[in-house]
Amino acid sequence: MAFLSLEGLSKHFGTHVAVDGLTLAVEKGEFVSLLGPSGCGKTTTLQMIAGFVEPSGGAIRLEGRDLLAVKPAKRGLGIVFQSYALFPHMTVAENVAFGLEMQGVAAAERTRRVGETLELVGLGTFAGRYPRQMSGGQQQRVALARALVIRPQILLLDEPLSNLDAKLREEMQIELRQIQRTVGTTTILVTHDQAEAMALSDRLVVMNHGRAEQIGPPHEAYERPATPFVASFLGRTNLVNGTTVRPEKIWFATSGLAGKVRTRIFQGNHWLYQIETADGLVTVIRQNTGEAMPGEGEAVHLAWAAT
């Protein structure tokens, strides 16, 4: 039996269907990402699990028990909101201690666990600060600490890294993954960033218009997309001779599909090509190995492995 299961979960806002019969089983300790374009119902799904949005239909079960019958305050979930939602009038330590206080944990034990969790997210020396005195990345880690310290059964993360710059986001992804591995908390992450979802998750739920188009490990979803939407959402694709081919799986050969280089862009570790062919524009990505590569305007032939 799955740890957390969503069974035909739906949400209608008037006539608009935000979530449409979503079924998903999450195992204990698993890291699952809800991935999809803006407005596809990711936040609504998460809010239904958290209890802040009431489903129009379907069921949510935690270890077989009906979670919808449990009040949001009693669900024991750790939530990191997109806006962090830190308590602005409390210090970092007070923010993190709040959940423990609600559980009636004794003061000494509270202090110990708050200190421990702040260490875990690398904010050991920031306990006395107010949220407004911290950077976005630090606030995000406070939000994570606040959710983790209550030892939640499930961690719900709603685009927690979207406000960070690229470098900090990458650091936080690694940190998040490490923390999740250390603590072993079942985690559901909402994101519209496919790279982030693939980097962090055990499994992806690729959503579109409130439905799950594909549920599976990142590698599988990337290599064997179930629908054209999944293929185009998870990275670039080409449609050549009626088959979809990933740009990095095409190479320059002495024979094959003839074409002419229209643009060539250098991106450090790889080259990005747009090739004009009889079949239309084809995108090609080649690893930068230091060798000379075809230039713009040159005639080339394209080949790829049959799938």
């Binding site: 802040f52 024991g76 909101f81 997109q82 308590f87």
Partner: peptide, 25 residues
Amino acid sequence: DRSIEHAAISLGASDRTVLRRITLP
């Protein structure tokens, strides 16, 4: 910001506690 109150609720605060500790301040 409603999500601040939601955060408090998710941490186990009752409606009264949310009002007293979060909303009113």
